[in-house]
Design a binder for these strands. Sequence first.
DNA 1: GCCGTGAATGTTAGCGCTAACAATGTTTCT
DNA 2: AGAAACATTGTTAGCGCTAACATTCACGGC
Lengths: 344, 344
Amino acid sequence: MPSSSRREPVMADVARLAGVSHQTVSRVLNGHPNVRAETQTRVRNAIEELGYHRNLSARALVTRKTRILGVVAFDTTLYGPASTLLGIEQAAREAGYFVSIVSLRTITRQTVSEALNHLAEQSVDGVIVIAPQRSAVEALADLPAQRPLVAVEGGRANGTPVVCVDQVGGAYAATRHLLDCGYHTVHHVAGPLDWLEAEGRVTGWRQALTEADCPIPEPYYGDWSPRSGFEIGLRLAADSSHGVSAVFVANDQMALGVLRALAESGLRVPEDVSVVGFDDVPEAEFFTPPLTTVRQDFTEVGERAIQMLLDLLAGNETSRRDGGAAREVVPARLVQRMSTVSHP
Amino acid sequence: MPSSSRREPVMADVARLAGVSHQTVSRVLNGHPNVRAETQTRVRNAIEELGYHRNLSARALVTRKTRILGVVAFDTTLYGPASTLLGIEQAAREAGYFVSIVSLRTITRQTVSEALNHLAEQSVDGVIVIAPQRSAVEALADLPAQRPLVAVEGGRANGTPVVCVDQVGGAYAATRHLLDCGYHTVHHVAGPLDWLEAEGRVTGWRQALTEADCPIPEPYYGDWSPRSGFEIGLRLAADSSHGVSAVFVANDQMALGVLRALAESGLRVPEDVSVVGFDDVPEAEFFTPPLTTVRQDFTEVGERAIQMLLDLLAGNETSRRDGGAAREVVPARLVQRMSTVSHP
DNA sequence: GCCGTGAATGTTAGCGCTAACAATGTTTCT
DNA sequence: AGAAACATTGTTAGCGCTAACATTCACGGC
């Protein structure tokens, strides 16, 4: 079987077959302008015939560009990060880049730094960090920024460009919606405060209450898990005698736990308590009852992050770390379902 | 700022600083045995001092190994694929490999083939395909297998090594559990039949019923989404007059829809109908009621897949496509919660 | 004391590609 | 017509690394 033992064809093989120099093959491959149409065809046919494809290592060695983008992500089993990652990967591939991922189990300065080193080893052309926690942001701030970098949900530490969802606006809309339902105030089940998303949602919630001149109850703090939502839900139920009747929960998973706790405590949603979540996971529509929540367009976030990173690469580092770092905000919008109802 | 304009250090720089040849540096880096301890230290110090790290493109060019593994995945926003991907990535990184992913929106022969081409362009050392659909398996079978490949949930088409969860056993356990609760038979809400997982679960369910000599009702077919579960749930509720009272649903998302539909139809779970799901997503514990389901250890699957692929790479293609392709089966286990109850 | 052995290091030759320059033809302008 | 411009192709020199071979030195057996 000679064909299987033959080595992969290289540019010189194509050149020989097409009767040109290897440089001409390179020119065809790279779309250089000054190649005769007839020569192009001959080269392309030879490429086709041999099943040739470029050796990217050799190319990267001389161009100093790997066309690999690195992504650092945290807890990719959650709907949000997973969707963002998907958007990133598809946009990157579309643009002719490869995506190398590093998933973190925990976010600390050290793990973030290790992840970036791992990607640096690979000489990625640029990095996207899905960095929802304050510690990640700090880790980024500390690190020498040798390489184009875009943060997703990352705050604006040290002038890193950022793409994020309008957490404040989404939370404001959720809270406003509950106030519009006729409640005197809205309780809040927040996420862990070292998460920027949690903080933004607290801010939006508080802002809506302040504007409407409502009392601002102490928020409850969960850890995003259904379990924490459940436990807080039990406390909410106990407190409901003294007026808990509208709750804005910082994510859908905790909202699920809250719903469950309220049900177990004999409270009906939305008749006794109205609940709003955040994320709009695919399941939210089928909770009991279907959850009114705030939709985030994660795919859009991923696409914009890649776009920003590509701009950075094209602009050859221009406008980076010049104090005027870009910040793109993707809007969030309320999706009304059945866990909220107008209240007399 | 001279330090910022200075180019990245290369092996020769390290060699100069350590007073050795570049080859000795290479030997230290690659753990060759015959280097004096004192020399090693000098080299390592020089590496440290310069912040040197190898240029992997140059290395790959000569070794013909990129140390990149490719992963082709489908719908990574689902809990299962996302978890598997996570396990794969972490195990690969542990082993000193990089992971390049390609996410597919749809699985067809063409998209799978394109994804593999994309990875081939990058000269990945090996590929893992998370290939839960029959069409993916067929696409793999068609493709020239130039490169070590492991399939996850992929059937055993054409002798590709496979890692998968014991779908049949899990479904059997779920069905058996419902029979043990005292039901005369168990209805099944299946996934789309071109998914191997759906097929395996149907098989396990049917097997348990056959063994117990129970009537085998026609399964309902959904598309994994909560919505399809909901719609089927409404039909189940309508049918419940003639005896639907135990349901095994092929995944937790559809089970959620079923629960919702039953509740809307005024049927209580588990008093009127018992329901078992499949997957054990983190939310399952907080459904209304908490869902009895079958847990799959996706992380384990990912780790084993990497292990298998590394073995393949180490064994230098041995034992590949020799008819005796490996097949590892990861057990699934029933998690009892509150959506099932013993029935008189 | 001489030689074989092996440990420790250095030297050389590419891997396959692109950038830079060189060498041709082919227009086009004056 | 001659020169200047341009289009088209070829030639050469590395990019930074590892494999293979070459060299040096120390040591033990005879």
